[in-house]
């Protein structure tokens, strides 16, 4: 049944179908686990980790697997393309997800309060989590301690532009006209186009929807087609490409600190998963994460090796 579904989905060249297929494979393979792991009170058993499959998320998921293995669990990691996919089966049959504070809270906000609900995330991570308790309770998800490491949207210019115009913060761009290369959802967002326009007074003449931290966005800025590009605070590739990250000095970005999201019922049965994950979060910083990303993106190391190295360096794995 599952193979037939997979084959059918593979034949159809449709993002929707592919997404549905990936969601299905996460769900079906875990349906058995959740039943068998229920009786174990604590310490050991299978723990299912899911999350997104971009480089950083992959590294962090591997770290989760490492620390949970050390705590006596048998971690099963299944990463997928987007949050929508694993949120269909989390917290039902997925136990732990490496999350970002704003990412998960806004997803739940959108799910329960509609796509056009006002954002619930502030620039302070802990405060945002406290405020969002009703949402988390409704979803059956518990967020552990947020890490000091944060991966929020950020904006970069080319080194040439930065030198010529003496720019190092977003405030330095005030009153300047720029073309912005960004993710297709940038327009109208407080942490993107609207924030840059309203809070920083930057004149955005055009938005090119070339993607978040994508090669097209980098190229567009490097070739001078656009002046400002969108990426993340933990982008490890900027320096080697001759690009400079600008400081978000007016803090338009909501908190996107790394945070472990755990199924509340799983946590009640296995309270000992919290300590190792919290210790891992405490050990990570934005700079560390940027370096780790660079080790994969620039030095071409494997995410699992980078994660294992970090854990052993910090006495966590």
């Amino acid at each position: 049944m599952n193979t037939r579904f997979l084959a059918g989905a593979a034949a159809a060249v449709s993002a929707v179908l592919l997404a549905g297929c990936a969601g299905n494979s996460v769900g079906s393979s875990n349906a058995a686990d959740s039943g068998s792991s229920a009786p174990a009170a604590s310490g050991g058993g299978t723990v299912t980790i899911s999350g997104q499959n971009f480089t950083e998320a992959e590294i962090v998921a591997d770290m989760y697997a490492g620390v949970l293995k050390k705590a006596g669990y048998d971690p099963q990691v299944k990463l997928v393309g987007t949050r929508d996919i694993y949120m269909k089966v989390f917290p039902k049959s997925v136990d732990v997800v490496p999350e970002y504070v704003g990412g998960i809270l806004e997803f739940l906000n959108g799910t329960y309060n509609g796509a056009n609900a006002n954002p619930v995330t502030l620039s302070d991570a802990s405060q945002s989590i406290t405020d969002a308790q009703p949402l988390l309770k409704k979803a059956g998800i518990t967020l552990l301690d947020p890490s000091p490491a944060t991966d929020s949207n950020a904006f970069f210019v080319s080194k040439k532009y930065a030198d010529a115009n003496n720019v190092s913060t977003l405030s330095d761009l005030k009153g300047k006209s720029v073309v912005l290369a960004a993710a297709p959802d940038c327009k109208g967002r407080l942490d993107c186009e609207r924030g840059l326009t309203d809070k920083y007074g930057i004149k955005i003449t055009k938005i090119l929807p070339l993607g978040y931290a994508s090669q097209q966005t980098y190229d567009s800025v490097l070739h001078g087609e656009s002046q400002l590009g969108e990426t993340s605070t933990t982008d490890g590739t900027l320096e080697s490409q001759g690009l400079v990250l600008l400081t978000d000095d007016k803090q338009i970005q909501p908190a996107e600190n790394l945070v472990p999201a755990v199924s509340s019922s799983f946590l009640a049965d296995h309270p000992d998963v919290a300590a190792p994950l919290n210790a891992l979060m405490a050990a990570l910083t934005t700079e560390k994460l940027t370096q780790l990303n660079a080790q994969v993106a620039v030095d071409r190391q494997k995410p699992e090796d980078v994660a294992a190295q970090f854990l052993s360096d910090n006495g966590l794995g």
């Binding site: 929508d84 959108g110 993710a183 297709p184 959802d185 090119l208 929807p209 070339l210 097209q216």
Partner: peptide, 17 residues
């Protein structure tokens, strides 16, 4: 590639959920 056409709405729709 940030070109014209109805694809703009499709990609936008997916990115903005």
């Amino acid at each position: 590639v940030a070109g014209p056409g109805l694809g703009t709405l499709i990609t936008e729709g997916f990115y903005r959920t």
